[in-house]
């Protein structure tokens, strides 16, 4: 585990180095969702496959989440964007990166891309849309319900029910519900200790003309029964370079419930826009920072081995 100080916060960062190392492998930065999510959602799903396909992967816990520091305030989307700028700087990643965001992580990816277009090579948004009035209202309503109107024990039960509505694999199995309840308790602690419930719905909205002029390619991945179908349909017409893929039978939790499909779709799309380059020549400085053996970087698989 590597802790990286950036922008005044200690961030938990995990990286899987690319296999078949090329001189300058495309760098993919993964952005997880809000409240119940951590970098683990990528560490155990997309990241190993991306590293195996020659991408340098960077995962980190967003402020307040996972193992990253939890400041009491500063939870609008623009605060997360400021963190990402600082983190990329701290990691020496000055060239444009590929962002892959899940749910709120996708919302963050859009905000970052609109305000720092020169640092983004592409955006993949899984069940996500930019901040808009509908998003903010839905977020505020859910947070109000969870934090203001229900006693703690009922809030947890309500949260578990809500989670069931976005999951396509919820079975009623007690072990599954116990895991969801743990996630709910974590989210409750975050909400209680910080201003996130007040801040997140007040996040800045990207001006329509800025979205319309977003130069980087955008991939939208949605569950067939997900939460942002209308926004996704709008984005496919509003964004100049946008493709949308719908995963049949899945809901909002499509990333962790259909990781192989999400991985396949995203890698195929990235191959079109940023093919992994075959090894050639000596590693440059940027690669050296992401190479196996560099601080906090572990290979997805052994650098030498069975040749699988």
């Amino acid at each position: 585990m590597a802790m990286v100080r950036a922008g005044g916060l200690r961030h938990h960062v995990e990286r899987l180095a690319p296999e078949g190392v090329s001189r300058r492998p495309p760098v993919v930065v993964f952005l997880h969702g809000a409240f119940i999510d951590t970098l683990a959602s990528f560490y155990f799903t997309l990241a190993p496959a991306f590293a195996a396909h020659g991408r340098a992967t960077v995962m980190y816990d967003l402020r307040g989440h996972g193992r990253t520091e939890r400041p009491g305030s500063g939870y609008r989307v623009e605060d997360f964007t400021t963190d990402l700028v600082a983190l990329l700087d701290a990691l020496g990643l000055t060239e444009p990166v590929h962002l892959v965001g899940n749910s709120f992580g996708g919302t963050l990816a859009f905000d970052f891309a609109v305000h720092h277009p020169d640092r983004v090579a592409s955006v993949t948004a899984v069940e996500a849309c930019p901040v808009n009035p509908g998003w903010a209202d839905a977020m505020a309503g859910a947070l109000h319900r969870a934090t203001e109107t229900l006693p703690e024990d009922q809030a947890l039960a309500w949260f578990t029910e809500q989670y069931g509505t976005v999951s396509s694999t919820r079975t009623g199995d007690p072990a599954h519900d116990a895991r969801i309840a743990r996630l709910g308790r974590n989210a409750g602690r975050l909400i209680k200790a910080t201003t996130i419930a007040r801040d997140l719905p007040r996040s800045r909205r990207p001006p329509a003309h800025r979205l319309a002029s977003l130069a980087c390619p955008v991939l939208l991945i949605n569950g067939e029964h997900g939460l942002v179908a209308a926004e996704a349909a709008y984005l496919t017409t509003a964004l100049p370079r946008c493709r949308r893929v719908v995963v049949p039978g899945h809901k909002h939790s499509v990333l962790v419930e259909a990781p192989a499909e999400v991985s396949r779709v995203t890698l195929a799309w990235l191959d079109e826009h940023a093919p992994a380059r075959p090894a050639a020549g000596a590693p440059d400085a940027a690669l050296a920072r992401l190479a196996p053996g560099a601080s906090g970087v572990r290979p997805a698989r052994p650098a030498t081995g069975s040749g699988r």
Partner: peptide, 27 residues
Amino acid sequence: ESIDLVTLSGHLAERYGERANLAQFVA
């Protein structure tokens, strides 16, 4: 929790070598 397993994965890789990390094992 899953984030604890990320930490455990790091400990395992440090102790037993990179092949022991959990990312591929549970992928």
